[in-house]
């Protein structure tokens, strides 16, 4: 899974095998991740516009994401065929999502 790849990078070069470098990288990683999780928190319960492949745009209320960012749980998904009360969006199908504060 993407999480496994992120936590166990296979691309670490041999020159960066010293502990200090690993620690620095881990610190950066956790800072970046914390910011991303705060973004998800901020997005929770907001009306979000999802921009999917083939220029499909749908709106829904964002609920949650799984840790690997593989699925988004949303409510009130406004599809061309009507409103879906609860839905899971596969992140592979989503290009971007946006919301206002």
């Amino acid at each position: 899974s993407p999480r496994f790849l992120a936590l166990c990078p296979t691309t670490l070069s041999s020159s960066s095998s010293s502990g200090a470098v690993d620690e620095e990288e881990q610190r950066l990683r956790s800072d970046l991740r914390e910011r991303f999780l705060r973004t998800l928190l901020l997005m929770t319960d907001k009306q979000v516009e999802f921009n999917m492949h083939e220029k499909v745009r749908v709106r829904a209320r964002f609920g949650a994401s799984d840790i690997d960012v593989l699925n988004f749980q949303v409510s009130g998904l406004e599809t061309p065929l009507g409103v879906q009360k609860e839905a899971l969006l596969r992140c592979q199908d989503v290009i971007s999502c946006s919301f206002e504060l």
């Binding site: 992120a6 970046l32 991740r33 991303f36 840790i67 960012v69 290009i95 971007s96």
Partner: peptide
Amino acid sequence: DQQSFEGRVFTVDPVS
């Protein structure tokens, strides 16, 4: 799909 987005980067998720 050649879409582009402009803005200021707040973070890049290290997982995804």
